[in-house]
Design a protein around this nucleic acid. Structure first.
Lengths: 216, 216
DNA sequence: CGTAAGATTGAGTCCCTTCAAAGCAAGTGG
DNA sequence: CCACTTGCTTTGAAGGGACTCAATCTTACG
């Protein structure tokens, strides 16, 4: 039910856990608000982002089944989160969660592992944002989604792109126009084919993966 | 001695801990190598970075006293680390550390907190790399160093810049030339003054902090 | 279908990069 | 003690990749 939390331990939480359904564009958390809950995505796609006062936006990550929102949380949320598709969530009150930690210290070890993963992903994204070209960024993004789908036991090849071009742009540090042009470039190179706007067929995984690291 | 680890717990490790001194440009860990150790910086500045095959580099962070290298580690290091200044380190074998976790589960909570911090810093850097201008990036960098110095109980105003312009560029996702020009811009705006290449006086903290978020 | 929102394409501009040269600071040897 | 060297920083000029602005096209949905 709530991925990553064994049933036996979940029992303790059962009364405190809420099962939420959020529609696309629905807000899950707002940057700056007191962080009272932690969420676990059980279905759908969530975007997590930060804003500058003038509206510039950087999407920090797209979360899918099994991912946590509010893992790295302190007093208040450091980012906002919004549903991209219809989303199902488990919501835990943080206080209850801390009680749970007292009783099952092994949970902290698991959370530490998750945090380590997130950190590694974040560092890869920094390399992308700081040093990759638009084409390389999009190639990396597609490979990333493909790999993640496989890890979740879903088909890895027609890559599903539930988010808009604007969202992709805000994740890759580009504009929608540049993202669109990069799609066209990859199409012209015969590396991908767009079945629909939101579904990309990878035609040459190897070449695409090379592009990811600059293999011209 | 080893910041962040209480003496009582440290006793258990004492035979396994090594006190290291590394000269500037000395390598601490190499990306891809098996992650056998975890390090705690006790003095000096360390840069942590990732490379692309063609040599493009992104510095993930500058670590100072109290910071950990290898916190987010899995099988092998996901990045390289190198001394910027003369550095003092505590080195823990990871195996011993895990034994310690068995005995003192509270240590995991502390590490989780540290990881949460790192994650928040990483997310701020993503916003910087994806969405800020060169001037804003440098302003953010200076404020960041100033705030960190204060947290470490050191003077926060003449900001110490032990790293080269190239290192700053590779951290901010820019070139050395652009970093240099951004310094000149901030000087012309009377927001900072460069006492020496490696020491910047902040003349107007408020204005600099505004620039950080686009308050042109 | 008809409409609106999103995606793509085009043209021109700008900020950062690239390439190149000059300036500066620190260390060495005469 | 100072010319000389060497490496880093700063400045300059030209170029390019991504951005901006704008129009067209496509898709989704009532």
């Amino acid at each position: 039910m709530c991925a990553g939390v064994p049933d036996s331990e979940l029992m303790v939480l059962e009364r405190a856990v809420t099962d939420l359904h959020i529609d696309p564009r629905g807000t899950i958390v707002d940057e700056g608000e007191p962080a009272q809950h932690m969420f676990n995505v059980t279905a759908g796609t969530v975007k997590v982002y930060k804003l500058l006062p003038d509206g510039r936006r950087q999407i920090i990550g797209f979360l899918m089944a099994g991912d946590f929102i509010g893992l790295a949380v302190r007093q208040s949320y450091a980012y906002s989160a919004e549903a991209v598709t219809p989303v199902r969530l488990c919501r835990f009150p943080r206080k209850k969660l801390e009680e749970l930690f007292e009783r099952y210290p092994s949970m902290e070890k698991r959370l530490l592992g998750l945090a380590a993963n997130e950190l590694a992903v974040a560092q890869d994204l920094m390399l992308l944002l700081g040093r990759k070209t638009a084409k390389e960024r999009l190639a990396t993004f597609l490979i990333m989604l493909s790999d993640r789908a496989r890890r979740l036991g879903m088909p890895s090849n027609p890559v599903s792109l539930p988010m808009s071009r604007t969202d992709i742009a805000d994740y890759l540090g580009l504009t929608t126009e540049t993202v669109s042009r990069a799609f066209t470039q990859l199409k012209n190179l015969k590396l991908i084919r767009l079945d629909t706007t939101s579904q990309a067929q990878i035609l040459d995984v190897e070449a695409l993966r090379d592009l990811t690291e600059g293999g011209s």
